[in-house]
């Protein structure tokens, strides 16, 4: 299972980077969304899926899944939620000011001179 998931994560990263390299800001932000999904799935994969029970104490159960990666993912999910929200509002504001969502039109002037 872990091996298959490694491929899935790689696939998510691939799609994410592909989207991030596109011109439309929306696509880019969607890319970052995929990126965090990929990262979260990868963390849980790296923890391993051994153990057949959720890490919640229950009578007669001793085989819990590794809880630590789950805790890390929770932290990471919250953080990426904050960042995504910020990024979305930023996109919204920049569209108001710059009238474009096309990255090729957001080069700005490298102040070469």
């Amino acid at each position: 299972m872990e091996i298959i998931m490694a491929f899935v994560c790689g696939f998510l990263f691939m799609a994410a980077i592909y989207l991030i390299l596109s011109r439309s800001l929306l696509r880019i932000i969607i890319g970052t969304g995929l990126l965090s999904h990929g990262a979260h799935l990868l963390i849980i994969t790296m923890g391993g899926f051994g153990g057949n029970n959720p890490p919640v104490l229950a009578d007669g159960v001793t085989e819990y899944v590794d809880p630590l990666p789950q805790a890390l993912i929770l932290t990471a999910i919250v953080i990426s939620f904050g960042v995504t929200a910020f990024f979305l509002v930023l996109a919204y504001r920049s569209y108001q000011e710059l009238k474009t969502d096309d990255m090729t039109q957001m080069k700005g002037s490298e102040d070469h001179e």
Binding site: A6, G10, F13, A15, I17, G38
Partner: peptide
């Protein structure tokens, strides 16, 4: 180029994941 780069990144993630696992 874009496709190539993203495939490279994906391959990298997968390979290291497999090896680490």
């Amino acid at each position: 180029g874009r496709a190539f780069i993203s495939i490279a990144v994906g391959v990298m993630v997968t390979l290291v994941a497999l090896s680490s696992h």
